[in-house]
């Protein structure tokens, strides 16, 4: 049985989330929101064909996306590409995040997952994005899920731990909320919605649900965990909507890279185009946005 006592009702959850992401963000708020979305971004490449050169290009873009624009928060890569990323961002404020624990499925023995984690940290990763073991979760072995997160948290040492729930695979909002509560109890520094590798990643309702879990955890324990949204956020409009959702649910104190991230690969292009529009009043051509 799911131990979490928090109940969730889909209809009202979805209605409230839809209302929040529909906030009308204009003028100065829009400009500030674009800067925030860039500064809170985990610029990501997670493909089997990633190479050190590809990662170096991504890092350069993350450090300096456009003249005057802020750096992104982190570069997110596979463990084998951590050394390349660490070298490329050396001396910069940009962090390196590594997925670990048999991303994206999480179906490897625990000792393998722990070793992957310690090696990524040893290679210089500042942040670890682990996936929860959905196989254990869906089989009802909640204690094992929690123990595993605790073990990975310990293996992270001083690195930040983001726990990917892969909400789209958990089957119900109540199950997602239960997974949130397990991850927070086990010491997750961030809750993260998705791997970005399945169809349903971050929806407004899922994001709201995670915010509510973080808010309740902070109310009960005083520990303020962060939120990372990943997968499917490709436009400025959608990013601004999520900022509004986080701002109104967790408060403006969460609108900082220390507590909020958007994991994305293509969102930066549109943010830079919209930023250009906000600064100059004209839409630029995509050809003027340097991609990695």
């Amino acid at each position: 049985m799911i131990r979490s006592t928090a109940r969730v009702d889909a209809v009202t959850l979805e209605a409230r989330a839809a209302m929040l992401v529909a906030r009308s963000i204009k003028a100065d708020a829009k400009r500030a929101g674009i800067e925030l979305a860039i500064a809170c971004m985990d610029l990501t490449t997670l493909e089997g064909k990633d190479t050190p050169a590809k990662v170096r290009g991504l890092c350069a873009r993350g450090v300096s996306p456009a003249p005057g624009a802020p750096s992104v928060a982190a570069i997110c890569v596979y463990p084998n590409l951590v050394p390349a990323a660490v070298e490329a961002v050396a001396g910069r404020a940009v962090k390196v995040a590594s997925v670990a624990t048999a991303f994206p499925s999480g179906l490897s023995p625990l000792d393998v997952k722990l070793r992957e984690t310690t090696e990524a940290v040893a290679a210089g990763a500042h942040e670890i994005d682990m996936v929860i073991d959905r196989s254990l979760f869906l089989a009802g072995r909640y204690r094992a899920v929690e123990d595993e997160i605790r073990a990975v948290r310990a293996a992270c040492g001083g690195a930040t731990l983001k726990v990917i729930l892969e909400a789209g695979e958990l089957g119900s909002y109540r199950a997602i909320r239960a997974a949130c509560d397990i991850a927070l109890a086990a010491g997750a520094d961030f809750l993260k919605t998705a791997t970005g590798k399945i169809g349903v990643s971050s929806t407004p309702a899922i994001a709201l649900l995670l915010c509510e879990a973080i808010r309740d955890h902070a109310r009960l324990t005083g520990r303020e965990a962060g939120l990372k949204l990943a997968g499917g956020i490709r436009t400025t409009k959608s990013a601004l909507g999520y900022l509004a959702l986080v701002c109104e649910t967790l408060g403006p104190a969460w609108l900082t890279p220390a507590r909020f991230r958007i994991g994305a690969s293509s969102l930066l292009d549109d943010l830079l185009l919209q930023r250009e529009k906000a600064v100059t009043g004209n839409y630029g051509s995509a050809a003027y946005v340097a991609t990695a």
Partner: peptide, 11 residues
């Protein structure tokens, strides 16, 4: 970042 969070107050 803090300035931006403050400036995000809806116009």
């Amino acid at each position: 970042a803090t300035e931006n969070a403050a400036a995000f107050a809806y116009a």
